[in-house]
Every structure is written in structure tokens, then in C-alpha cells.
Computed example of a mutant assay.
Amino acid sequence: MQSSSTTHITALVKKDILLEMRQQFSLYGVLLYVAATIFVVYLINGQPESDTWNALFWVVQLFVCVNGVAKSFLQEQRGRMLYFYSIAGAKDFILAKLIFNAILMLVMNLLALGIFLVLLGNPLEHMATFIGISLMGGLGLSLVFTFLSAIAAKAQQSASLVAILGFPVIIPQLLLLARIAKIAFAPVIQSGLTQMLLLLVGFDALVVVLAIILFPFLWKD
């Protein structure tokens, strides 16, 4: 049973990766948005201070996630969903979506960070620490918006509903990420990093558990 579930999840993830590689418009569109936004900021303000750099980075990550990840369920047609319903279970399907969107967001996260460093300079004191925090933050954002995308799709609403539902949920997480990321800008790593990271991991785990529990009720509709 476990082997069959793993096979279904792997096949669904590969399907999404192949579709993304064939289309590529979403990835290129997000990269263009990130590059254009950062370039405009650079023209207006030059290379900002560390606090502004940090805040701008997470705002851009939010919009990247909304535009890149939130469409995952909205682009699935009803006929295709019926086919998935016949070959895989609800848990396998939602886990495959969570994994694929996590991979997609991690790639876009690294690309966006590279553009930031090229155009807006490098105010980081601990590069490896910030990369790890940004990857964890991107993972958390992708999990939240994947689940919200499933709700919006079943409600037959547009991607705007994802943003509306996600705003009160994602703001506390963004504030936590921005606070954690400040550690990477300080010459000395301050205490409390472990506790905040555990809080972030716990939040991500809660989203995954809720998705696994609640998605089967949406899946039946």
C-alpha cells in the first residue's frame, strides 16, 4: 500500500514537472516580474539599507509565490481531476502538489535571491544562514498557498480568492521570517534563532497535516 502511494505521488510530481518544463511561461513571467521590480527599486533608491533590503526581499517572495504557486489547482480542468480521482487518492494528490510547488518555489527563491544580490548589493553578514532561512521561508509560503489554491479551485473562484484567503494567514509568517532573517544581517548571530526556526517548522508541519486531513473533503466534491 505504501509502495503504491509512493508511486502515485512520484508520478504526479513528474507530471507537473514535465508540464512546467514544456510551458515555462509561468517561470519566465515570475522571473521577469522579479527582475523588473528589483531594477525599478534600484533605479529609484539605489542599493538600500539592510532592513529595507530584507523587507523588500520577503514582499517579492510573497508575490512570487502568489503568481507561481497559487495557480497549481486553478489550471487543473474538471475532466483531468476526474481522471486523477480514478487513479490516485486524495492524500497522494495533495502531497504531490505540495512537493511540486515546494520544488518550484525553492528554485524561484534562489533565482530571486541571485537577482537581489546582483542589483541591490549584498548586505548579508552570514550568506549561508540567510540562504537556509530563505529556503525555509519559500517552503512555508508554497505549502500555505498550495492548500489555499485547492480551496479556491473547489470553490470555482479565481486566483484572487487565494490572495484574499492567504492575507490573514501569511502576514504572521512573513513577520516571523523577516525577524528571523535579520539575524543574517548582524555581525554576530544572536540567540533565539533555534526557537524561531522550530516555530516556523511547526507552522509548516501544521499546514501539511491540515491539508492531508481537510483536502479529502474537497476531493469528493
Rank of each mutant, 00 (worst) to 15 (best):
M1K: 04
T6R: 13
H8T: 06
A11Q: 10
I17A: 07
L19P: 02
E20V: 04
R22S: 14
Q24S: 15
Y28C: 11
G29R: 11
Y33A: 12
T37E: 09
I38R: 00
F39L: 15
F39I: 06
V41Q: 10
I44V: 11
Q47A: 12
E49I: 01
E49K: 00
D51F: 10
T52Y: 02
Q61T: 02
L62T: 01
L62H: 06
V64P: 05
C65W: 05
C65I: 09
G68Q: 00
K71V: 11
S72K: 03
S72L: 09
Q75K: 14
M81L: 15
Y85N: 14
I87Y: 14
A90D: 10
K91P: 08
D92N: 11
K97A: 06
L98F: 07
I99M: 12
A102C: 13
A102M: 05
L106S: 14
M108F: 08
A112K: 01
I115E: 10
F116D: 01
F116L: 07
L117V: 04
L119D: 07
L119T: 08
L120T: 02
L120E: 05
L124C: 03
L124M: 13
E125T: 05
H126Q: 14
M127C: 01
L135Y: 13
L135I: 05
S149E: 06
S149V: 07
A150L: 01
A155M: 14
Q156Y: 04
Q157C: 07
S160H: 13
L161A: 01
V162Y: 06
G166Q: 05
I171H: 05
A178C: 12
A178E: 03
A178H: 01
K182W: 06
I183W: 04
A184W: 00
F185A: 00
A186V: 04
V188H: 09
V188F: 10
G192S: 06
M196E: 04
L198Y: 10
L200K: 03
G202R: 07
V208I: 09
V208M: 05
I213F: 12
I213L: 12
F215D: 05
F215R: 07
